[in-house]
Amino acid sequence: MFRFSVIVLLSIVSSACATNVPMNEKQLADITANNMAAIFMTYSGDQNCSPASIIIINTSMKTAHSIRTGGKSVGMTVVAPGEYSLLSGSCGMLSSGGVSASFTDLYYWFEPVTVNKGEVLYLGHMNWDVITKKTTFSGSAIANVLNKPFGTKVKSNFFFYTIEGVSHRDQVDEYLQKHHPELLTSLTTRTPKRRIDRENYENMINESFAKNSDGSYPTTQEANQKLKEALKLGLR
């Protein structure tokens, strides 16, 4: 799977767990006084890759917030008003403490969302489709030189990220009804707009794994780098 990172200067990342725990008194007071806002997300992804920690970033202040969500638990964080972008995420904590999957390219996939003072905002439900393609590549740069016409065919999986705002909003409704019914009528849904459609993404994959001009196949590293560059150019 391809991955690439966005390099930014971040302050300390504040985090919030997947929770059915109510907000504390200060958080609630800051929201009702229109000083802060609450952001909710839900996530399913893969049942073997849950819960997920999704990091959002304030695009002007460069402050980051981690929203931990998965299963029947909603993710919530309290933030200052401003413009926010999805930055990255990870899911599936292993018993060893390692991360079983990461998605470090969300910054390029979705447009920023404006969060207003006092707002109770549901950013939507994050999931992904897995696109499986048969790709042909050279095993190494040396093999490419010695035996240009030949390559290895394998099945490769690529994530196509989706966020939608309808099917799991009831989880947020239930959370607010249970803990903060006074905020229920303030709940608004505003999902980040995706910058790419599935057809364009599949074309990027096909072009990245196509033969080089000399008839040789790219190595996996070369093909993934081409795909990263295509995403950067096409999704900014």
Rank of each mutant, 00 (worst) to 15 (best):
V79F: 04
P192F: 02
M76I: 15
R194I: 15
E83W: 09
F158P: 00
E111C: 02
F158V: 02
S85C: 14
G92C: 04
H168N: 06
A210K: 12
L121H: 03
G98H: 05
W128H: 13
S73W: 09
V74Y: 00
F160Q: 04
T152W: 09
E202I: 15
D197S: 12
L87M: 11
T162H: 06
D197H: 10
L87Q: 11
R194F: 05
K155Y: 09
E199S: 15
F159M: 14
G89S: 11
V154K: 07
T136Y: 08
N157V: 04
G165Q: 00
V120E: 00
M76C: 13
E83T: 15
T135R: 10
S186Y: 04
L86T: 03
D197W: 03
G124A: 05
E119T: 13
N157R: 15
D129E: 15
M204V: 06
F150E: 13
S140D: 07
G70H: 05
H179L: 00
L187Y: 07
Y175N: 00
G165S: 00
I131E: 09
G124E: 01
E207Y: 08
G89P: 01
G71D: 04
V79S: 03
V172K: 00
H125F: 04
G71W: 07
K72I: 10
H168D: 08
E207D: 13
F110L: 02
T191F: 07
G165I: 00
Q171N: 06
Y108R: 11
S102N: 08
G82F: 01
L106H: 02
S186I: 05
V172T: 01
S90K: 14
W128G: 15
G97T: 07
E111M: 06
I196P: 02
G98E: 12
D105A: 11
G124R: 01
T188G: 06
V78R: 05
R198S: 13
D170Y: 04
V115C: 01
P112D: 02
D129Q: 15
D105L: 03
S96C: 08
N206P: 09
N212T: 13
T135V: 15
M204E: 08
E182L: 04
G97Q: 07
Y161C: 04
E174F: 01
M93C: 09
S96R: 10
F103E: 03
A80I: 08
F209I: 10
V74F: 02
P81R: 03
Y84E: 03
G89A: 07
D173R: 04
S95F: 09
S88R: 14
L176K: 00
T104G: 10
K155I: 10
K72S: 11
L86H: 06
G71E: 01
F159S: 11
S138E: 05
F137A: 08
H180S: 00
A210M: 09
P149G: 06
S208W: 02
F159N: 10
T152E: 12
H125Q: 05
V120L: 02
L87A: 05
Y201S: 09
E83S: 14
L106I: 06
K211C: 07
D129G: 15
S138L: 05
K134A: 12
G92A: 09
